[in-house]
Computed example of a mutant assay.
Amino acid sequence: MNVFTVDHELCRKDGICALVCPVHIIDAEPGSYPVLDKHKAVYCLSCGQCMAFCPTLACTAPGLEREDCRPLSAQDMPTPRQADELAFSRRSVRNFKDKTIPREDLIDLLEAVRFAPTAKNTQNLRWILLESRERVVQLAELVVAWMRELPRIDPELDEAMHAGGLVRAWD
């Protein structure tokens, strides 16, 4: 199965897709259409890098649509000062507002998050979306109950994750 396709009417045969492929599995000879050998297809990360860099949107990777890998437009790029401000003002301490976020906004955020980088672009993440403070507290209580049992279930994991300290902080 060929997981990489090229629209011959759009392709400029410039080989950009091959140059930007992070696993170097796209073959592109000057003046020829790029190809992906079926034996190399198993190594495709489905990262969309080839699609994002193709100036004519001529190629597609498996499981991705062209609109999923749109190139970043110059006018949407943050200025160096804005990027600096975002990086330096980021905090991991979470103080949440007691305000419901519209479901449509949550879905949009989750849709955007799926393009965040992960190791080898595997995207092997799971999200738990809780839409009320009560459900968050309920989940936290379940996790703490599990951590209370951890010394008996898996002492090594208990020690490695400092579960006892987390339980004491919760209490």
Rank of each mutant, 00 (worst) to 15 (best):
residue 124 N to D: 13
residue 34 P to C: 01
residue 44 C to K: 00
residue 99 K to L: 12
residue 7 D to Y: 00
residue 145 A to G: 12
residue 91 R to E: 08
residue 66 R to T: 07
residue 96 F to R: 13
residue 65 E to K: 13
residue 142 L to S: 15
residue 37 D to C: 03
residue 138 Q to I: 10
residue 26 I to Y: 00
residue 16 I to H: 00
residue 101 I to Y: 00
residue 145 A to E: 14
residue 109 L to F: 15
residue 53 F to S: 09
residue 21 C to K: 02
residue 7 D to G: 03
residue 154 D to G: 11
residue 115 F to C: 03
residue 139 L to K: 05
residue 10 L to S: 10
residue 121 N to K: 09
residue 16 I to R: 04
residue 28 A to I: 04
residue 133 R to M: 05
residue 147 M to G: 12
residue 86 L to Y: 11
residue 84 D to A: 10
residue 7 D to M: 07
residue 135 R to H: 11
residue 81 R to H: 13
residue 77 M to C: 14
residue 89 S to L: 05
residue 81 R to S: 11
residue 13 K to Q: 13
residue 78 P to S: 05
residue 119 A to F: 08
residue 161 M to L: 12
residue 18 A to R: 15
residue 5 T to Y: 07
residue 158 D to Y: 07
residue 68 D to L: 02
residue 85 E to L: 01
residue 116 A to T: 09
residue 109 L to G: 10
residue 67 E to Q: 13
residue 79 T to K: 04
residue 155 P to Q: 06
residue 98 D to P: 03
residue 71 P to M: 11
residue 48 G to R: 07
residue 132 S to C: 03
residue 95 N to M: 01
residue 24 H to S: 10
residue 97 K to E: 15
residue 112 A to R: 05
residue 97 K to A: 15
residue 2 N to K: 08
residue 18 A to T: 12
residue 72 L to E: 12
residue 29 E to P: 03
residue 49 Q to T: 00
residue 129 L to F: 15
residue 151 P to Q: 00
residue 18 A to Y: 12
residue 7 D to K: 01
residue 132 S to A: 03
residue 154 D to P: 02
residue 59 C to I: 11
residue 88 F to W: 15
residue 152 R to Y: 04
residue 79 T to S: 14
residue 40 K to Y: 02
residue 71 P to F: 11
residue 52 A to D: 02
residue 39 H to A: 14
residue 49 Q to F: 03
residue 148 R to W: 10
residue 30 P to Q: 08
residue 92 S to F: 12
residue 161 M to R: 08
residue 147 M to Q: 14
residue 67 E to L: 02
residue 65 E to S: 12
residue 140 A to P: 00
residue 87 A to F: 15
residue 168 R to I: 05
residue 1 M to W: 03
residue 171 D to L: 09
residue 19 L to F: 13
residue 76 D to P: 03
residue 47 C to K: 05
residue 35 V to Y: 06
residue 60 T to V: 05
residue 113 V to D: 06
residue 68 D to V: 00
residue 30 P to N: 00
residue 114 R to A: 06
residue 70 R to C: 01
residue 2 N to E: 12
residue 156 E to Q: 11
residue 149 E to R: 08
residue 55 P to H: 04
residue 72 L to D: 07
residue 73 S to A: 07
residue 160 A to F: 13
residue 135 R to D: 15
residue 168 R to C: 07
residue 134 E to M: 00
residue 170 W to H: 06
residue 63 G to S: 02
residue 134 E to I: 03
residue 29 E to W: 05
residue 168 R to M: 09
residue 17 C to S: 03
residue 165 G to W: 01
residue 46 S to E: 08
residue 166 L to M: 10
residue 17 C to Y: 10
residue 56 T to D: 10
residue 61 A to G: 08
residue 119 A to V: 04
residue 109 L to N: 03
residue 70 R to K: 13
residue 27 D to V: 06
residue 12 R to A: 14
residue 131 E to S: 08
residue 3 V to P: 12
residue 22 P to I: 14
residue 35 V to N: 05
residue 150 L to R: 08
residue 17 C to L: 09
residue 135 R to N: 10
residue 111 E to A: 13
residue 166 L to N: 01
residue 29 E to A: 09
residue 145 A to W: 06
residue 24 H to W: 07
residue 81 R to G: 08
residue 136 V to I: 09
residue 108 D to H: 09
residue 61 A to R: 01
residue 130 L to Q: 02
residue 75 Q to T: 06
residue 2 N to R: 00
residue 146 W to K: 12
residue 58 A to F: 05
residue 154 D to N: 13
residue 123 Q to G: 08
residue 77 M to R: 14
residue 168 R to H: 14
residue 153 I to Q: 06
residue 75 Q to D: 09
residue 28 A to R: 15
residue 102 P to H: 10
